[in-house]
Computed example of a mutant assay.
Amino acid sequence: MTEPSTRDEKLELGVELLAHLEREELDLAAAVDRIETITTSPGLTRDILDAAEKRGVIDRDGARLRIRRGGTYVEYESQVVAREGDFECRRCGASISTGHFVELDAGELGPFGSSCVRKVTGRETESE
């Protein structure tokens, strides 16, 4: 799989990422943190959130999001692939030798370090 390059591909990947979060609720800042692994464009971030809401993936209540995913978590055994190499984590910018890539229907997201991939998918929070 390859990294999405068009605006539409990034939008689809962002919506799918939100649909696969392992949290029932999170604040807007946490959602934006995850979306920023795909894009740092404020306009596209807003479009991803709007599309996710229109498609019933999320409900927004002020600065809180409720995920309406229907049990579609990322399957770590099949959807997270580790590759060796010289990478920079898309979330924190750290240099890593093992990159973790999340393979979703809309595209591949990564590389991430081992703790950042857990944060991006919602399996782990900042305080854990």
Rank of each mutant, 00 (worst) to 15 (best):
M1H: 12
T2M: 07
T6E: 06
E9A: 03
E9R: 07
K10Q: 11
L11S: 02
E12F: 05
L13D: 05
L13K: 02
V15M: 00
L17M: 04
A19L: 08
H20N: 12
R23N: 04
E24T: 11
E25A: 14
E25H: 03
D27R: 09
D27A: 07
A29H: 07
A31L: 04
R34P: 13
T37F: 01
I38Y: 07
T39F: 14
L44H: 08
T45W: 02
I48P: 09
L49R: 00
A52Y: 00
A52E: 02
A52D: 02
D61F: 01
R64K: 12
L65F: 05
L65M: 07
I67Q: 04
G70N: 00
V74G: 12
E75G: 10
Y76L: 08
Q79S: 07
R83V: 03
G85P: 02
G85Q: 05
E88Y: 09
C89Q: 08
R91L: 06
R91K: 11
G93V: 01
A94I: 00
S97Y: 06
G99I: 02
E103A: 01
E103M: 01
A106I: 10
A106Q: 08
G107T: 09
G113Q: 11
S114D: 14
S115H: 14
C116E: 11
R118A: 14
K119F: 10
K119L: 15
V120N: 13
G122D: 03
R123G: 08
E126Y: 13
S127G: 10
